[in-house]
Design a binder for these strands. Sequence first.
DNA 1: GAACCGTTGCGCCA
DNA 2: TGGCGCAACGGTTC
Length: 540
Amino acid sequence: MSMASLSSSLMWFRKGLRIHDNPALEHAAKDSKFLYPVFVIDPHYMESDPTAFSPGSSRAGLNRIRFLLESLRDLDSSLQKLGSRLLVLKGEPSEVVIRCLKEWRINKLCFEYDTEPYYQALDDKVKNYAAVAGIEVFSPVSHTLFNPADIIKKNGGRPPLSYQSFLKVAGEPSWNSSPLSISPPCLPPVGNVGNSGNFEVPSIGDLGYDETEEGGTTPFRGGESEALKRLRESIANKEWVANFEKPKGDPSAFLKPATTVLSPYLKFGCLSSRYFYQCIQEVQRNVKRHTSPPVSLLGQLLWREFFYTAAFGTPNFDQMNGNRICKQIPWNDDDHLLAAWRDARTGFPWIDAIMIQLQKWGWMHHLARHCVACFLTRGDLFVHWEKGRHVFERLLIDSDWAINNGNWLWLSCSSFFYQYNRIYSPISFGKKYDPNGNFIRHFLPVLKDMPKEYIYEPWSAPLSIQRKAKCIIGVDYPKPVVSHDSASKECRRRLAEAYELNKKLKGVVSTEDLKTLKRKLEEGKNQESKSKKLKQKLIG
DNA sequence: GAACCGTTGCGCCA
DNA sequence: TGGCGCAACGGTTC
């Protein structure tokens, strides 16, 4: 064996916080004398921000920060079982990694490829240094089933914008012809790291957060071990896996959620999406019949791919301005309405209960997310989807840049989906699943004694009933911020006008054009209320 | 240029 | 539980 092949490797963990199906880790371990497994705590995501609307950093709530630390501890413990350990450092990641490459005389740098713009920029810096220093870089695609770049190329340079066309272009994943290796790799020891730091996984307190503070109450524990346990439990019920139909799931189920809740583990890569894919396939092979994409369980994994591909192939995917697939719509900038939504004070119990579940758990059912996203944007409040996106991005434990932005584009009828007349009712949608309002009673205990006839619209309860339920509307629980009937009608009108403008200008809408439209819409609104008043006068 | 389709709307009817 | 009218979008396909 030559000197060059028996080298020191650095495995840079970012997502992909797992041992199983981790090609970067395997490559780092191969033919190496020493292996340095590194995770960098990035202040960009982790630094405490006391001005944020809830405990956490400016980009992550306490629930997700805790979930990440749990995942790191689990990874460290798995590495230790293999005779290694995790080295946790703090700082701007590209600087920290470059410093490690120098100090530890690394010959080979391995990390999972990441399609997010933030990581692309970070990776470029590190790769540039490595190229100059003559360090081998191995950066495989293993977070997703497909390489988004391949699909975009196959589709003629642009990402497919409908799910069906995505499926056609994507086909079968290339690695799927044989089972993946999921047995733990043999790891070389960690080399000398000096005594300049302790490299331990920090506690939430070490990062400057108050452990006792609200916002860290999710029932879901992070880590690969937990992910694999949850995966086994989910796929053990073969009938459930085979008959899974996403739209038929109950968004109000909280004692036993209607889905796998594997999304946070996929987000951090505690679970390999490829391994999950093969496990589902294995179940499907052993049953007579099963559901298919888009509604099946496999279909859910393919939705993830769909959004990753769209996000990778669309500049400015996370904003309206400069995003070629995003309809230009004159959303409001109403911070009061935004705050009412964010802080679960809209006065619509179904909406507010979901927002409380988001705050407490960092997770809600997909359809529940639809309801609150639609309500904030095109359904009722007409607040900019980017504002809602930011709240979800901070608070969800599974928040994923591509998927979160993709779904906000979808729900706000800004891209992918355009039938803006289909609006989720904040009153009747939840009632279908949960007529007794158990979900509301659980997350909004102030309404726990409200009779089921009124629990979805408590403002309509007679005062005697409100008194009996010990919940006076306007005192103990807010009055609704808008009337759904008139607000949703107004939203439809605005969207119709905005769509017309987008069509007329072939999607090239300037901020000036939007301002003009906004003025026109305001005038229309005033005119309408004037004529209403006039009518009332005449009737009166 | 038209027909068809689209992860999951609502309210009403049978 | 399933089908229809509502009103009527854009992407894809022919």
